[in-house]
């Protein structure tokens, strides 16, 4: 095996490692919300990680800035909430995390993810 082959193998492994790191492990910036936070929905949730106080209601305003049908719904499985987000409109979801912990939310098809961290 010559150098090119080694280069391709090592390069390939590096790409795989990076892809998995980037999509699964890389830290997303968390935002602390007191009563209300606006989440931009465009190919993902921005911010995607929101720190909230346990036991206190928080208003999550989803501002959907796209027509992609992927993001047309937001689901909070722990709270049984599923909401249709009209394109280019703001839709409010009010959530009260009962106790400290991580509560995920996602799009209707579970491709886009975000989470509430209750403290």
């Amino acid at each position: 095996m010559h150098a090119t082959v080694w280069f391709v193998i090592i390069g390939g492994l590096a790409v795989i490692a990076w892809v998995n790191w980037y999509f699964f492990l890389a830290q997303r910036a968390a935002v602390t919300a007191s009563t209300e936070v606006t989440i931009t929905v465009k190919g993902g949730y921005d911010p995607a990680v929101i720190r909230v106080k346990a036991g206190q209601p928080v208003r999550l305003v989803f501002d959907r800035q796209e027509t992609s049908s992927c993001s047309e719904e937001v689901v909070f499985p722990d709270f049984g909430v599923k909401k249709f987000l009209p394109a280019f409109q703001k839709t409010t979801v009010e959530i009260t995390a009962p106790k400290p912990g991580k509560y995920g939310f996602m799009c209707g098809m579970s491709m886009l993810h975000g989470s509430l961290i209750a403290e």
């Binding site: 980037y22 999509f23 890389a26 997303r28 190919g43 993902g44 949730y45 921005d46 995607a48 992609s68 992927c70 491709m111 886009l112 993810h113």
Partner: peptide, 8 residues
């Protein structure tokens, strides 16, 4: 940009 990936 949001560290997520979909069909697109």
């Amino acid at each position: 940009r949001h560290h997520s990936a979909d069909m697109n």
